[in-house]
Amino acid sequence: MTAATQTALAVQVARLYYHQGLTTGEIAAELGLSRPKVSRLLGYARESGLVEIRIHDPAAHPRSLAGQLQDHFPGVQVQVTPVPPGSAEDDWLPRVAQATAALLDSLLRGGMTVGLAWGNTVDAVSHALTPRRLGGLDFVQLNGSANIQELVSGFVTDTVTRFARNYGGRAHLFPVPTFFDDPHTKEMMWRERSVRQVLDLQARADLLLYSVGSPVAERPSHVYAAGSLDGADQAELSRLGVVGDIATVFFRADGSWEDLPINARASGPDLALIAAHPQSVCVVSGLGKVPALHAALRGGLMKRLIVDEPTALALLEQVTEPEV
């Protein structure tokens, strides 16, 4: 067989195999060749460059996004979760929650204490957990939720206890208001022994899990939707340039949180503690959270980020957008 004949036959075999989807046996029968001959011709087609095989890895783009974001925020480990192209934003959070649940399984060890900041995202993670028994795990609520709406819905307590049940651990709730009316009331409450026990657990937490809250998310963060903030509070936040919160403690677009009056009334931990924590995991999904996420990254308010692909791309565009 001449080289030209072999090339023409290899092209014919490749078309039948790759374009028409025939098996090597079907090609052999159609062309009057043996199956080993067909296999050799297919190998020749690949080796000689007649056929090029390209693998489009759906995870490659997220990995590239993660690397670019880590270049901008080198102190943060970024994990970008792929989502189906063209999928609705409501479909992204379950993917991110599953990725977070898998990460927790690799991080959690018996005897650890985990601080949980309640909200829609952490609640979604609680539903994605795979049951696993670990000895001596403590899950402590990081910010208060004692209001009429929470007493009726049980949203926060269900989230924290779901984590505890999943791992066979203990749930430590924080039965204080989300926001106090007077910062002096908070100061007095913080002296109570039962409250101090929870605060001490928070301070000793080995891992923190939370999201960023945003008033402009497609699905409003629970703190904004559950009536914890009245109109005057929200107007003050807007006037002061607040773009988001972590554990109901607010921060500005530059990532700063100091001297915001409402934070003196908030039940969540000082964000300086979160910024300094060595094992802080922030979970984010949704384009409306991009400004808050960008600000939190600027403020150094996480060590690890898990985010869906479209939100990561929007964040990268905001980070790289030229300043006017």
Results as ranks from 00 to 15, higher is better:
Arg191Gln: 15
Met189Tyr: 05
Val176Trp: 01
Lys186Arg: 15
Thr161Phe: 08
Leu173Gln: 07
Thr159His: 05
Leu199Gly: 06
Val176Asn: 13
Arg204Glu: 08
Val160Thr: 13
Leu142His: 05
Thr130Leu: 06
Arg196Val: 06
Ala205Arg: 13
Lys186Cys: 05
Asp200Lys: 12
Thr159Gln: 12
Arg204His: 15
Val156Gln: 11
Asp138Phe: 10
Pro183Val: 00
Phe174Arg: 13
Arg132Pro: 01
Arg193Asn: 05
Thr178Phe: 07
Trp190Gly: 13
Trp190Cys: 03
Phe179Ser: 05
Pro183Phe: 04
Leu199His: 06
Arg204Ser: 13
Val160Ser: 09
Thr130Asn: 09
Ser153Cys: 06
Tyr167Lys: 04
Thr178Gly: 02
Leu173Pro: 02
Gln149Cys: 00
Phe163Cys: 01
Arg165Gly: 04
His172Val: 06
Gly169Met: 07
Arg170Asp: 07
Arg191Ile: 01
Leu173Arg: 00
Phe163Trp: 11
Ala203Cys: 09
Phe155Asp: 07
Ala146Thr: 11
Val176Phe: 10
Val156Arg: 09
Tyr167Arg: 00
Met188His: 11
Gln141His: 10
Phe179Pro: 10
Gln197Ala: 08
Ser145Tyr: 10
His184Ser: 07
Pro183Ile: 07
Glu187Tyr: 11
His172Ser: 04
Arg191Asn: 09
Arg193Asp: 03
Leu151Asn: 09
Ser194Trp: 11
Asn166Trp: 00
Thr157Phe: 02
Trp190Thr: 15
Asn147Thr: 07
Asp138Val: 15
Leu137Thr: 00
Leu137Met: 06
Ser153Ala: 10
Gly144Lys: 12
Val152Gln: 09
Thr185Cys: 02
Val195Lys: 14
Phe179Lys: 09
Val195Asn: 11
Val156Thr: 10
Thr159Tyr: 05
Val195His: 08
Ser145Ala: 00
Asp138Pro: 11
Asp181Leu: 09
Arg193Trp: 01
Gln202Val: 07
His184Arg: 14
Met189Thr: 02
Glu187Gly: 11
Thr159Ala: 14
